[in-house]
Design a protein around this nucleic acid. Sequence first.
DNA 1: ATTTTCCGAGCAATCGATTCCGCAATTTCT
DNA 2: AGAAATTGCGGAATCGATTGCTCGGAAAAT
Lengths: 344, 344
Amino acid sequence: MNLSRASIAELASKLNLSPSTISRALSGQGRISEETRQRVRQLAQELNYQPNHLAAALRKGRSNTLGVIVPHIDGDFFARVLKGIEHGATQAGFNVMVCQSNENAGHEKKNLDTLLTAQVEGILVSLSLTTKDVQHFEEVRRRDLPLVFFDRVPELPQVSAVVLDDYQGAYQAVEHLLGQGCRRIAHIGGPQHLNICRNRYRAYCDALRAHDLPLDASLVHFCDLTLPEGRQAMETLLQRRPDLDAVFAANDLAVAGAMPVLRAAGRRIPQDVALAGFSNELFTLLTEPHLTTVDQRCEEMGRTAVRLLLDMVAEQPHQFAPRRVVLQPELVIRESSQQAAAQK
Amino acid sequence: MNLSRASIAELASKLNLSPSTISRALSGQGRISEETRQRVRQLAQELNYQPNHLAAALRKGRSNTLGVIVPHIDGDFFARVLKGIEHGATQAGFNVMVCQSNENAGHEKKNLDTLLTAQVEGILVSLSLTTKDVQHFEEVRRRDLPLVFFDRVPELPQVSAVVLDDYQGAYQAVEHLLGQGCRRIAHIGGPQHLNICRNRYRAYCDALRAHDLPLDASLVHFCDLTLPEGRQAMETLLQRRPDLDAVFAANDLAVAGAMPVLRAAGRRIPQDVALAGFSNELFTLLTEPHLTTVDQRCEEMGRTAVRLLLDMVAEQPHQFAPRRVVLQPELVIRESSQQAAAQK
DNA sequence: ATTTTCCGAGCAATCGATTCCGCAATTTCT
DNA sequence: AGAAATTGCGGAATCGATTGCTCGGAAAAT
């Protein structure tokens, strides 16, 4: 009973064959007799032979491993995207190494190093909030290593990326609020150096403009979209504009923070103030009333990103043109925004 | 500009040194002059040399990689444990490969194979719901590969595991409700073939018994602890026992399902009915009132599991005795259960 | 001044699988 | 039947880093 796993050499000596023959028998590549192949496979089975992935990877120069860098693993969004990624990669026979940058550009850089030395065949990245420049990804490009960004992507045209059409999603959400009869719609926005937040804000502006409504700065408040900041944002807005009749926030958490504030101020939801968020987090079904929100197609994003990456990996002379995929979000209408229906 | 990354051999030829010298210079192991070391490190820097992890791993027989198998990545709990795992592993210089079994024993087996061929140095597992026998883990043991289970663990004494003391957590929660003056406490329990759910139910029973309260089957309802099932459970319980004055559920989601039902029935929370859940999911801070719950120390569980695993990895002749760590949960008291205070 | 240490560095084997090349035997073709 | 093509397999190099052994030369010890 060998403690160490059986190697190809062992199989070879037991069958009086050469290692090369064993390799061919197992891989099915190359010229080999059916009989020998059977014998080899049989013995491999018996000895519970398991190939050493490292050795094969070293020789072939292909590790069959993909690297992923996310800001953090917990939290609905990234966990769901990761699920999609892992699923897609596994289906294609690739392993996945996961790193979290903890929203820290320095960590992100280290993660990148780790993945590079681990010889991954491609890298998926969603940028950390503190990443201001993407210099460290230059190295990846120089190595000609497939790289796909998702969700939080740099503003460069020459990179491959999978993003959600935040603009469309936000636009639809605001349109919907307008359709409910709201006219003084406030916006709780996120950090404007993030493209996603900027797009959501832009959509808010454009939607109002399209309806010939004034763009009033007093109806807009930017913050970091956490629960407490959402609460605070709502307090500020309510103070500035007691007449607001709807709130569109750049994420669900901010809305969750806002709700108790509104309620404490005696506003009914949605009768007095209609609410819409963004992300379709799980908890939007747990609030009362349920939250109207925009679904981000998390798993689809993950699957799409891997597919894109694997396509790039497959292209031999890695001379891929950068590709961009824009996923269409889906407005999920729930009670929190149904002012028209609740009004009567 | 070399497209392929620089190798040790390249460094060697550029400096007219042998590969072995380069290796020693970079690793700092072995006898080497300070001057040479500097020169080598300098050039390595300039050429942006990055070691080939695969080659080193192959030669050293150490991949510096850990494998993790979880039922699924999304959902608060596992995502948070993963965060802890990734964090702990990274700190120790290990990479992490993540697989999800999708609650499927077959997948779990395949994941295991994947990790084994990837030559991971240790494996962390939380069992899938459908895994009835753990035969497939025998192979890991025969290879003398460190293995640590967490949260969902097999009932065998000879395996290392990190679990939460569900019993204690549940007991404290029920104690707390009793302390609020509740006497007709209902329980929404989970599938009793899961040790965690069984323990929580047992604690409920024991706590009541300790206070000389009758164990009334009409106050107990088992279900799958989803949102709709929680709702339904509450309806059933309320119908059977309109006089109930508290509910302890085996998870938070069930409580979230129960809340609207209670409210619809005109019960105030916590004045008429006190509530306590289990897991301390994020959304427990988003309900009104906020939910009293039991924190599962997710990240700590992850970190602990890695530490245990790495300890085992470090022990040379892998002759580790199986170890078990039982984490103490923490009762998080919030408004939903503060009947005594709210009563006035 | 000679012997002993020690130091710095090179040589070569090694990890395990893959793959190019080549050889002998068999089959197929003119 | 002789030439050509095909088949089945072995030999040996290779991927890149590591490491035990060796060895010349310098420093230290006697």
